[in-house]
Structures are given as structure tokens and as C-alpha cells.
């Protein structure tokens, strides 16, 4: 296991996503979500690598409408955009999501930054909601579905959700060394061998 900083998680994830061709803005969003998950002691590294692989092999959707059980919507890459979309249009959304914890990260981030209240459900129960800049959820609850409902959250529903807990930032967990090395190798793909013209005047 290896100690890594939050900044390293952001930076290496961002570049790793870029290495598989993910657009700059989306790669940054994805890196911010991985960083949030790490900061809140969620398992993030394997999920990040898996999302990059799925993107590369075309097995994940970036579309709000065209997502299926076989090709679900990528919360890791598009989670922030989805919560912005729902918040700005005050609309409800439902669909197949791959790795919903990235959606929880997205909800938490937009709640903190823009004080937006959202609620995430599966077909039976509430999984998480945001209120007054905090996120509330049952962190260890096992969710057996890939189909989710995300919508604006109204305060009147809160009474029935007292069993959900808020989260606090924790020290960065250690990460699996092999997974970390894999992420770094992917990040390395975005680097360029230095040219002679680049060296000219650069103090070599």
C-alpha cells in the first residue's frame, strides 16, 4: 500500500482519463470525483481504472437518453454534468448508471458549492440526498440495481430520511501500489518526448 495525496489523485486521474481520449473538461470532472471519493474514504482507484477501460472499449455511455443495462451512463465521467443538468433545469432524470458512487460524489460537490438539494433513489428506497450543503446517505448499504432516479429534493421529504448520515472528510487512505502504478502509467501516456526546439532557451 502507498500513501498518496489528494492532489496526486486529482492530477494522475485527470491525465489517465486524457490518455484514453476523454475530453479535457470531462477528464477534470472525473478527476475531481475520484479525489472526493478518496477524501471520503470510498474505494476509488479500481473504479477509476475500470471507468477508463470501459470508456476506451466503448462500453459506457455519455448520453442522458441512450443508456442501457449493457451500456450504462458513466457517473464517473458525466456525474457532475448530470447534477448540473438536473439542478439548472429543475428536472427529474432516470436511467442506467455505472458505479453510482460517483453520482454521490457529484451530488456532494454541487451541494457544497452551489447549495443544491438533490435526491437519489433506486426503485425502492432513497440512497442519498443533499441538504444545506451536506450529503446524507447510508454508506455501507448494498444496492442491487443499476437503474436510478435523480431529482431535486424538497425539504418536506426529510422526515422520513433521518436514518441517513452525513459524511466528513478523512485523511487520505493508502492505495494499492499496483493500481496506482497502472494509473501513473496511463498518465505517462499524455507526456511528450522533449524536442530540441523546446530545449532552446530553456536553460539546458
Amino acid at each position: 500500500m502507498l500513501n498518496v495525496s489528494l492532489n496526486e489523485i486529482y492530477s494522475e486521474t485527470y491525465k489517465a482519463y486524457r490518455s484514453v481520449g476523454i475530453e479535457w473538461g470531462i477528464a477534470k470532472d472525473g478527476a475531481n470525483l475520484s479525489r472526493w471519493l478518496a477524501e471520503h474514504n470510498f474505494y476509488f482507484l479500481g473504479s477509476t481504472l475500470k471507468n477508463a477501460d470501459l470508456y476506451k472499449t466503448g462500453k459506457i455511455s455519455l448520453s442522458l437518453r441512450n443508456n442501457t443495462l449493457k451500456k450504462p451512463f458513466s457517473a464517473a465521467l458525466m456525474g457532475l454534468l448530470l447534477v448540473e443538468y438536473i439542478s439548472s433545469g429543475n428536472v427529474k432524470w432516470q436511467g442506467y448508471i455505472y458505479d453510482y458512487k460517483f453520482l454521490i460524489a457529484s451530488m456532494a460537490i454541487i451541494a457544497k458549492e452551489q447549495n443544491v438539494n438533490l435526491i437519489l433513489k433506486d426503485n425502492k428506497t432513497t440512497i442519498a440526498y443533499t441538504l444545506e450543503k451536506n450529503i446524507f446517505l447510508q454508506k455501507d448499504k448494498i444496492i442491487n440495481t443499476n437503474y436510478f432516479y435523480l431529482e431535486p429534493f424538497h425539504l418536506k421529504e426529510k422526515l422520513s430520511l433521518n436514518h441517513l448520515e452525513t459524511l466528513k472528510a478523512l485523511p487520505v487512505p493508502k492505495v494499492n501500489k499496483n493500481c496506482w502504478e497502472r494509473l501513473k502509467l496511463m498518465a505517462f501516456e499524455t507526456y511528450v518526448p522533449e524536442s530540441e526546439t523546446s530545449k532552446t532557451g530553456a536553460g539546458y
Partner: peptide, 16 residues
């Protein structure tokens, strides 16, 4: 909305 525009065109997310 800007968010929908960016979902349809992820390539403009960075600049928007």
C-alpha cells in the same frame, strides 16, 4: 441550459 449543451457536446465543457 448550458448543462444540457455540455452534455450534448462534452468537448465544450472545458471552455464553457
Amino acid at each position: 441550459t448550458g448543462a444540457e449543451a455540455m452534455i450534448l457536446h462534452p468537448e465544450i465543457r472545458n471552455i464553457i
